[in-house]
Amino acid sequence: MLASKLAAQRHRRRPDFGLAQVNIVLLLVLFFLVVGTIVETDELAVDLSETTDLPLERLPRPLLLIDGEGNWALDGAAMAEADVVEALRTPPPEGQPNAVYILAPRDMPADRLLRTMQVLLPAGRTVKLVTLKAGGDE
């Protein structure tokens, strides 16, 4: 009788799905880390211009948000134009491109966009416009 109990215990080991579960969740975490970009909700408030054929990029920093009223916010902090230029004169951290990225509404007058360039370029940084990649033909 004792032997039969011991034999029963030997076969009672159930499969452990915990490790597989952790592996899947870890892969999901890595996925969101790689493809995602941490943004503030305010930075998504404007309807960006759309492009279809340009390559995808991560949303980098510093981000200059220009809202519909023409107010500027650098990385979420509302600033005057002169303060933005002064902040951008500081060299970027090691390994980051020397650029500033503009989030502007798609219906903003182009003249205002060019004026923004004129204001920002003396800061010594490349000016880039952030666009949303719309569904292409593929």
Binding site: G36, V39, T51, L54, R58, L59, L129, T131
Partner: peptide, 11 residues
């Protein structure tokens, strides 16, 4: 995180 696909245009 935001999964919105962004592109960049150098101005």
């Amino acid at each position: 995180t935001s999964l919105a696909p962004y592109s960049l245009i150098t101005l």
